[in-house]
Design a protein around this nucleic acid. Structure first.
Lengths: 335, 335
DNA sequence: GGGCGCCAGCGTACCGGTTCGCCGGCGGCA
DNA sequence: TGCCGCCGGCGAACCGGTACGCTGGCGCCC
């Protein structure tokens, strides 16, 4: 591979002049610029990313730390990875994928080895141990998820609390006074997954405020048991006719389970949900729901990180993405 | 951050001696080794990945080029990314994610910028334009997918042809002589997606050989239309009672669609399928199927790439992963 | 016509490691 | 006791870029 020295020799100029052309930081007269560009073309030269990184101490790459929860709906992850990568590329950055089980070790390794300029963390939980090394090193990072204590690290997420309130309001406005709250597995709440906790807390509070009686129904981790529990749930005539769903597996299965029992939406059951956009698209889910906005979240995450890289000492920012309710007519007035 | 020079000063030795300890390529006496290790510990030193990459011209990272097909079942992608990343880390390598729409440009950029030591390509199609720059640069790479012409690049994939034969055999052995072949959208075959084409070709051939009459039924891209078409399909009494499924969306929906119509597996319909492991797990799919083995495929892909990095001139290898049939009793003898 | 200012381009130091040739001291053997 | 060989540690060059201070030539203005 050609180096900057080869280009310089070919063009009959010094290495530093070639560098000026490459970085665009200094003026170069058109004739010499053209000679250099011709040489670059001829030698098929392209800057060595590692060497540039060493010289500028900027790697132009971002680490994305994902943590794999059994209880989570993993396909949503792919969407985030792709959207993050696309957003990062807009700024000329690449994504380095960090998947090891021990996220803290991954974070430490990246900070110590200077392999990335910044980090983006996914799958956050309250009290997440990955925050401490970041905070104490003052390393540029953005959280996707909103823990109770962000430890002064930039963060962004969908406003799950607002989403929960919208859905509760929608049921109440239609006249419902009872609803089943179909939840994630208890393990997810116990782990402190921020989106699950924030949604649930806000839903409960809003239900109290609006006089909606909420029957909480956490579901198992295993999909076959989810299906079984859902079937039982919808078969039981004593259960509420309205359902507030925050569980992707359940959201995907529910229309089928209802249909199996000959129950119609919204005639027999009113359903509102917040589930991954990926899932909705894939299964053509047709219930009134809050959109999860992975693209917007990813873009803001990258944007916040860029800001942080350019202003390391700016004060931390937490940004909530305003959710929007997609009406699909899955809620009717109770009989 | 501490540099190797700081460590050397702290330990009272030269930089090269510290380097010897770090790389382990040269003998160092226990006392000096201990002094150096103490200094490393004290200064919390860790080698700068970029600098090492420049010096050794090994970046210790692998680019993964994914291409996003509308018609594909994207969640399966997340599994591959995670499994690849885990496998790579076993060898000390990181994964750089390359998602841009123009995969050829991504490949060119990586090769020219020497940002990664090798590439792994996903979502391969026959005549994939990404192969040419790799082949002509002789850049280390592994394909996940088996195009007709690998252009002498290492490749690995599940043996979809063998899988198709297993499923056809299973139906025939149970006494079926007619079956619907539920397919991916035609667009996917037209794009030349290698796994789809290889499965379909082998299924057709085996069906002819074994005297099974195969009725091909490609499905639309849009999930809601998939559901509608499946419903029509299973409602039509003239259609075969056996179904050979190669379409993840359809595989997920089929049990529900059948159940809706009051049709039972295997009493009313015999079903065999090849779908993503991720999907099967998520929806507790309960049909006799060929496992898709993303973990094994990923591990072999990384293994092949490592071999290639250590032996750039070895001849290209294509490896097919032997599929296995998971019996789940979804096939019965026809009445 | 002479002096001054401007700026294109050059040279060199540096980023943080690795590698390799060399040297000096020590131990073993005759 | 003297010589030789071995090897632990050192120094310097190098990987491929960037950054910064300097210089020399040109044009403008007086």
């Amino acid at each position: 591979m050609a180096t900057i020295g080869d280009v310089a020799r070919e063009a009959g100029v010094s290495r530093s002049t070639v560098s000026s052309v490459l970085t665009g930081r200094k003026l170069v007269t058109p004739p010499t610029r053209q000679k250099i560009e011709a040489a670059i073309e001829k030698l098929n030269f392209s800057v060595n990313a590692g060497a540039r990184a060493l010289a500028t101490s900027r790697t132009m790459s971002i680490g994305v730390v994902v943590r794999f929860h059994e209880a989570e709906f993993s396909p949503a992850l792919a969407t985030y990875l792709i959207d993050l990568s696309d957003a990062a590329r807009e700024y000329g950055y690449s994504i380095v994928l960090l998947t090891e089980a021990d996220g803290v070790a991954a974070v430490r390794r990246m900070i110590a080895g200077r392999q990335v300029d910044g980090l983006i963390l996914l799958s956050l939980v309250n009290g997440d141990p990955r925050l401490e090394p970041i905070a104490s090193a003052g390393f540029p990072a953005v959280l996707i998820g909103m823990p109770q204590d962000t430890m002064s690290i930039d963060a962004v997420d969908l406003d799950f609390a607002a989403g929960a309130r919208m859905l509760v309001d929608h049921l109440v406005d239609a006249g419902h006074d009872h609803a089943t709250f179909v939840q994630w597995p208890v393990e997810l709440y116990e782990s402190g997954a921020t989106y699950a906790v924030r949604f649930a807390d806000a839903a409960r509070q809003r239900a109290v405020d609006r006089g909606l009686h909420l029957v909480e129904q956490p579901l198992p981790v295993e999909p076959e048991l989810v299906r079984r529990d859902l079937a039982e749930l919808v078969s039981d005539p004593r259960k509420p006719r309205a359902m507030l769903v925050h569980n992707d597996t359940a959201a995907a299965m529910l229309p089928f389970v209802l249909h199996e029992r000959g129950l119609r939406i919204p005639g027999d059951r009113s359903v509102v949900s917040l589930h991954s956009a990926e899932l909705a698209q894939l299964f053509a889910l047709d219930v009134t729901s809050v959109a999860s906005e992975p693209l917007a979240v990813s873009q803001v995450a990258v944007e916040l990180l860029m800001r942080r890289l350019n202003a390391p000492d700016a004060s931390a920012e937490s940004r909530l993405i305003e959710p929007s309710l997609i009406l699909r007519g899955s809620v009717a007035r109770p009989a």
